[in-house]
Design a protein around this nucleic acid. Structure first.
Lengths: 332, 332
DNA sequence: AACAGTTACTAGCACGCGAAAGCTATAGTG
DNA sequence: CACTATAGCTTTCGCGTGCTAGTAACTGTT
């Protein structure tokens, strides 16, 4: 805060302070393999760097190196917030240790600004869920060559439907035999919704259960109430919801229709959001190991960034069911 | 995808294609003021740039220019998600139009990776809420000189407590005379909680109401039930909650204690989160003009980035109350 | 015709860093 | 003692862009 216009500390400043060439400083700071540097010089350079508060200029590194060491995570704009957090935190940590920076970017449909990848020169773009064709084209046009999941490969992200299976099994285990699936109205979620519905039906079939009907449920119109009443009339006692919001919508409709939860109908949510614990009655839900997924994806991204072939490891995505008040054995 | 290793298209490529010097290309692409370029040349350069798919190398620009044109928004890790979204979207749009990129960064207390500003060279860091002293020091150490809100100035972000006033006034207007404040247990929110409590008390005083008691409410322990029962015994009929989550915790406790909402007790939340609409009974809440705040903050950041003094405009932060089922005139 | 003024450019440096290539002592080898 | 090998440096180039300081051609003026 003295009148001096503070200039950036560069590697040249260190070189001058120590009395060596700038190249030597570079070799020390980067630990350049195949370069012999005496211990004394090494120490003096490190000390000077610390003393002067040297911070490499990222743009200059990017320019010289040819890669930015930035990994861009593009997230959907639907709320998985609490899970997303652990996922991103873990991924950031893994990348950070490898010398990369992670930038998480939430893209919204109505977004009026250019997507971040057009101005960021990321080494890798990671999409969750996988990028659609338009986005892949946009990424490619912006010069992003490393994309995960691989747009050409058709392998979906692993374990995305394990939770749904758990929902069905939980209801089966406590005695429910007639189930229904509550779908989400948001069109952005249509693809994932379809995956989970299919998974629910497969799980039901494996358990020898009858057909699983599906209804889209919205708390803002009458669809939730209509669905609940139809299910009740049809003898459905267990509802598998797409997520906790949908579960709450179903539960709300049931309460307003005078049904008891879980007396008349059991409901299982998904994602274990704060809402699940706050709702009355508290919602049974599915919690997932987001950190494991984050670690896995970050490693895939690193392999991509450095041109190595990605190991065909399987993601460590454990899910488990959190039983609360909204599910219980059926009456009678 | 042909065997050719695709090299980046640079300004030199354009120059060569058109048959002019690289400097000329630069002048055309940047519309450099004070430089005369003939219309013919200008057009040919633009055409070649488009044809070759030229994209300026951001790192090189940053290096040459001396600034990155990146504004870093550091967000808290508490969920304001739906409001945050509009706030960030609007800010990103304003910055985008000015040629800047916005990067939103959510920092978590348990975060194991280095904060993003250490590796990003942002021109401006914007904090919401305002950065604490430690963070300011960390930003300064990382070379971030432009910080908003100004760490030296003590002016708080505008309009942060307008919603609280609205909560109190709403309850007053429909007839409540004895109010209480439900505080949030999360220590990260202590400062904001204090601000809102103070605002609630001021509003109550202006309306000639008695003392507003405050209780911290957590749905995971018995504190919510205890608070509700104490309030009910003390004749409190209206509860002003810190946010919708707290409102839900209070409402849940009331329901479990056998009280009717809004018959025995009215509850007003804050932020108008999805939870407010999903809860049974639906929660009265406060919605705010996050987009207006985003626009305002983005403009402040731009002024900071370009070294102009920030205009002392007032943020356009309208708030309004959304009445739902959880509030009604008191019985009797 | 000599001169100034303008237009429309070009040459070239600077930004900070990574790293290949070169250079100089000294140690080791026959 | 000549010759090679190596440790430990330094010189220098290149990354792609912004932008200042020229410069050549042309136009208008007296």
């Amino acid at each position: 805060m003295s009148g001096t216009t503070q200039r950036r500390v560069t590697a040249s400043d260190i070189a001058q302070a120590v009395g060596v060439s700038r190249a030597t400083v570079g070799f020390v700071l980067n630990n350049t393999p195949g370069q012999k540097i005496s211990d004394g010089t090494r120490e003096r350079v490190m000390a000077a760097a610390a003393r002067l508060g040297y911070r490499p200029h990222r743009a200059a590194q990017t320019l010289a190196r040819g890669n930015s060491r930035i990994v861009l995570f593009v997230m959907p704009d639907w709320p998985l917030e609490h899970n997303m957090r652990r996922y991103l935190d873990e991924a950031a940590h893994v990348l950070d240790e490898a010398g990369y920076s992670m930038i998480a970017y939430t893209r919204h449909p109505g977004d009026r600004s250019r997507p971040l990848w057009e101005s960021l020169d990321a080494d890798v773009a990671v999409g969750f869920p996988a990028f659609d064709a338009d986005t892949v084209a946009s990424l490619r046009a912006a010069g992003v060559t490393n994309i995960y999941p691989d747009p050409s490969g058709s392998a979906p992200l692993p374990g995305i439907t394990a939770g749904t299976k758990l929902q069905v099994e939980h209801l089966f285990e406590i005695g429910h035999r007639r189930l229904a699936f509550a779908a989400v109205p948001d069109p952005r979620l249509a693809a994932l919704n379809e995956q989970r519905l299919t998974a629910a039906r497969q799980a039901a079939e494996q358990l020898g259960l009858g057909e699983v009907g599906a209804c889209t449920v919205d708390h803002r119109d009458g669809s939730a109430v209509a669905a609940v009443e139809a299910w009740h009339d049809a003898g459905v006692t267990g509802v598998v919801a797409y997520n906790d919001d949908v579960a709450a919508a179903v539960a709300g409709a049931a309460l307003r229709a005078g049904l008891a939860i879980p007396g008349d109908i059991s409901i299982v949510g998904h994602d274990d959001s704060p809402l699940a614990a706050l709702f009355v009655p508290a919602l049974t839900s599915v919690r997932m190991n987001s950190a494991g997924l984050g670690r896995f994806v970050a490693q895939q991204a690193l392999h991509l960034a450095e041109g190595r072939p990605a190991p065909q490891a399987v993601a460590d995505v454990r899910v488990n069911l959190v039983a609360r008040e909204s599910s219980a054995p059926p009456a009678g």
